[in-house]
Design a protein around this nucleic acid. Structure first.
Lengths: 357, 357
DNA sequence: TTGAAAGCGATACCAA
DNA sequence: TTGGTATCGCTTTCAA
């Protein structure tokens, strides 16, 4: 069994003070090179690692960032897209020597959890996921004066805050427009929960594209809910069984899109051949591509990039604050969504037979 | 701006000692009810939260568990199945007042990261993911004497350790057997990396099912690699273009299975109709079902359960150790895999036209 | 260039 | 039932 040693033991072994050893290991300039070398070698030999808890208590910085991942209280599911977002962020953190604290939390009591994390002083900053139209976490965190970056935006909030978002409105406008240009007239929108800010923006883009062509949005073709596979299935089945079914679906996430496919099969239709087109997107990016890009992969790497950039922003904000530059203004990044249509989306042109009007 | 107060300030405000306030809040019996009530009210009013770092330094327990998620250094991807595993575990942790520290790490230097986490004393225990055939992390962590649970097993390790695994061998034996019973004779196996312990066990089960029917496994029909969408696509395309293609695929994860479908489409074949059957599983469970179960959803909830149970085991191990019961023997759980065949797997019976032998 | 000592914010032992 | 004080392991200021 290996017992791990602390600073005191190491310094005694070296016949030096704790101060000197600490300075040597942390790269302070006032240590002689000879001493530093000796200390480094000894630390290596005994595989000394400073106790993180003690270190952070002494420095006042925990070198930890919190992410709170909402798990649906209704479906006990997390959006798997978070995995990629966190992978991207996590990479950035470990590069900078930060740890990542993950809270998996029912979406009902988010605010309490955020307040808790902030006031327990367990992290140096945090990422706010899945903001609603008017998200109370934002003013609360501002009040607590802890660095944070919102992944997404909250339209109802007045003041400025740091965010990274994708241009959801334009992305959905373009996607819907693409389908319209191909001749589709009955296009369904399977969106996320209506309380979510992104869902609102996506609705906007969708409606705008229709209006540009003089088409009024049909409320029968718009659905809002948590983005589960079953949601996609149920809604698509219902819509497909009406007398005037959609010929295309715009789906807000890859998960319900799987359900939509299932409904299409079940209705005896063949996806991408004679009935309908599904364009799904993930939580962040949109699709356009000519060729053979595996859609699933394209989505994932874009989310990963978002995570990376969010993390980088947050670390930069923390850095600035430590240097006393607190009035630099908010950091705000709008990722322009790329439209990618991969092979797995199916062919773009629906058969004339089924295309109405 | 809200400034958060510490124990000292709170106790001064109350005219009590820090000791008493601490005791009152932590439920020690030797505090009078009147005092406790007063303290509780004041703490509530000022929304006092003990500083986690100080607390854990003083108690010696960090109330944090680490998970290390491998991100492929080759493909920069994490297995999305981890999201569900962690969701399950995270739920268990927050129930018990534990935090979850997540390390996203290139699969190349896993051992260093594990050693680091253990020796920095930042967590009370950890979960080992994706063990290889002879995983060096296991003896190392035993050496460091830190509580851990392995998600999976490592066949090459001699001593006993705590693990939770699924019966991979039997699951793949049954799955392959099912296809054989349906008349398939050319069944491909798309497995994970050959270094992984689970891949080895799955190979075993697959081979065994074939041998039981007197069929020798064809090495041309077996593939090992990281489970990406593209891997599934490339391998399936290659296999389908030979003169003696498979009529069914057994795929080790849902991600490459998406690629397999794409390859099937590309070859001009229709999945589940006239050519082939894909049975995929996730990292933990297997599929059987008559009806309309959305496969994707079934997988996910089983992984979630595994995460929950792993976490519960670990917390129990930590609890026992704190009570000094260190020689209780290892905890080992074998989840019997359930075979679920959902609608999205496609029909089970391939058309006679394409079924050879 | 080195070291002694005072924090950081809690817990826990020992007295009162 | 309460309070004083040492302690956890490290950083950091101040003196030498």
């Amino acid at each position: 069994m290996i017992s791990c040693m602390n600073l005191k033991q190491l310094s005694e072994k070296l016949g030096l003070s704790q101060t000197t050893v600490s300075r040597a290991l942390n790269g302070y300039p006032e240590v002689s090179e000879a001493t530093r070398h000796k200390v480094r070698k000894a630390a290596e030999a005994h595989s000394y690692r400073p106790n993180t808890r003690a270190k952070s208590l002494a420095t006042g910085r925990s070198m930890t960032i919190a992410h709170v991942v909402p798990v649906s209280s209704k479906h006990e599911m997390v959006n798997p897209i978070f995995a990629d977002f966190i992978a991207g962020a996590g990479e950035e953190y470990s590069r900078a020597g930060y740890d990542l604290l993950l809270s998996v939390v029912a979406d009902s009591d988010h605010e309490r959890v955020y307040r808790d994390i902030a006031t327990r002083q367990v992290v140096d900053g945090l990422i706010v996921q899945a903001p609603t139209l008017t998200d109370t976490r934002i003013p609360m965190l501002q009040d607590l004066d802890i660095p944070f970056v919102v992944h997404g935006r909250s339209s109802g909030i007045i003041g400025a805050y740091n965010w990274l978002d994708v241009n959801n409105r334009r992305a959905f406008e373009r996607a819907t427009g693409l389908l319209l240009d191909l001749g589709h007239r009955r296009i369904a929108l399977l969106n996320g929960l209506a309380t979510m800010d992104f869902a609102h923006r996506r609705n906007d883009g969708y409606t705008r594209a229709l209006l540009e062509r003089g088409i009024a949005a049909d409320p029968e073709l718009i659905a809002h809910d948590e983005m589960t596979e079953n949601y996609g299935f149920e809604v698509a089945r219902r819509m497909l069984s009406t007398s005037n079914p959609p010929t295309a679906f715009v789906v807000s996430s890859i998960i319900p899109a799987i359900g939509v496919r299932r409904a299409i099969n079940k209705a005896g239709l063949v996806f991408g051949r004679d009935v309908s087109i599904v364009i799904h997107d993930d939580d962040l990016s949109y699709f356009r591509n000519t060729g053979d890009v595996p859609l699933f992969t394209a989505v994932r790497s874009s989310v990963r990039e978002a995570g990376q950039r969010c993390a980088a922003m947050l670390l930069e904000i923390i850095r600035r604050r430590e240097e006393g530059l607190r009035n630099e203004g908010p950091m705000q990044t709008l990722m322009e969504a790329e439209l990618t249509i991969g092979q797995s989306t199916g062919p773009l042109i629906p058969s004339a037979a089924k295309l109405r009007s």
